[in-house]
């Protein structure tokens, strides 16, 4: 059966999950993102790289409308998820974010038990019809985040008591539990030590089989290790977008090359 699914996936691979066209973002008077076009393909890991302040995180936050929570932010252009404009007035950001999950830079478990952390999403979205179903979702999500073995005996303990890497995996489990289609990760390893980072990177690679993953990172090595597609941002512009291998070995824009070779950034 697994094989059959694998076949299905191959078919899906070329499906465009998200298409962004002519996206501009303003923070008050600051023009943070300038006319960006990006296509996110299903079941791939897309990496956004670039120097600090280049707008990669801002753009990521456009994809599930997290910028809505900032009063002065304004987004123009179109971003389509499965052919539907996510900035359409009829779209409820709450529903959108259930489909497009997000993992943040700093692990941010809620001050609740591990179980309640994972169950939070399914509860608010009403994904489980009873306690048993909820238990199942929690277990499955923790397994997918490779945290089940470490956490199964302490589900009722606070999530804040875990180590940094475990906390970040808990946050991934929490995001996975709402059954999203896209997973956005905003520098998920920047607050972690190398061992925890390796674990998360391994996990990202596994997650690719089910979700399309978009990851922001300022570690080029990380982008090279985990992603299939890479977008290079500089000063709010999308400089180059393509296959990861291509970008790193044969960048077509001189700015990309300077960044990769360490001359800017």
């Amino acid at each position: 059966m697994n094989d059959m699914r694998a076949v299905e996936r191959d078919v899906d691979t070329n499906d465009l999950k998200i298409t962004a066209r002519g996206v501009d973002v303003f923070y008050g008077d600051t023009h943070a993102i300038k006319d960006v076009d990006v296509d996110i393909v299903d079941n791939t890991v897309t990496a956004f790289i670039g120097p600090s302040g280049c707008g990669k995180s801002t753009f990521l936050r456009c994809l599930n409308r997290m910028n809505d929570t900032i009063d002065v932010a304004r987004v123009e252009g179109s971003i389509m998820l499965d052919g539907e404009d996510i900035y359409d007035p009829k779209v409820d950001p709450v529903q959108l974010r259930a489909k497009v999950g997000m993992v943040f830079q700093k692990p941010n478990p809620f001050p609740k038990s591990i179980y309640d952390n994972v169950a939070y999403g399914p509860r608010i979205h009403g994904l489980a019809k009873d306690k048993a179903a909820l238990d199942e979702i929690v277990e499955k999500s923790l397994r997918r985040a490779a945290l089940w073995d470490e956490a199964k005996d302490r589900l009722d303990q606070p999530g804040t008591g875990l180590s940094g890497g475990q906390q970040q995996r808990l946050c991934i489990a929490r995001a996975v539990a709402t059954n999203p289609e896209v997973l956005l990760m905003d520098e998920p390893c920047s607050a972690l030590d190398p061992i925890a980072t390796a674990q998360i990177e391994e996990l990202i690679d596994e997650l690719r089989s089910r979700y399309s993953v978009v990851i922001v990172t300022h570690s080029m090595q990380q982008a090279a290790r985990v992603s299939q597609k890479t977008a290079f941002f500089h000063l709010g512009e999308l400089v180059e977008f393509g296959e990861t291998g291509h970008i790193f070995t044969n960048p077509s824009d001189p700015r990309t090359e300077s960044y990769i070779t360490g001359r800017i950034g």
């Binding site: 599930n64 997290m66 929570t69 709450v94 529903q95 959108l96 974010r97 259930a98 999950g101 997000m102 993992v103 943040f104 700093k106 941010n108 478990p109 809620f110 001050p111 939070y120 999403g121 608010i124 979205h125 946050c171 929490r174 995001a175 709402t178 956005l184």
Partner: peptide
């Protein structure tokens, strides 16, 4: 970050 975490999961 806690607010972001919750909004990111689609909470109102």
């Amino acid at each position: 970050s806690l607010r972001d975490g919750s909004f990111g999961l689609g909470a109102t």
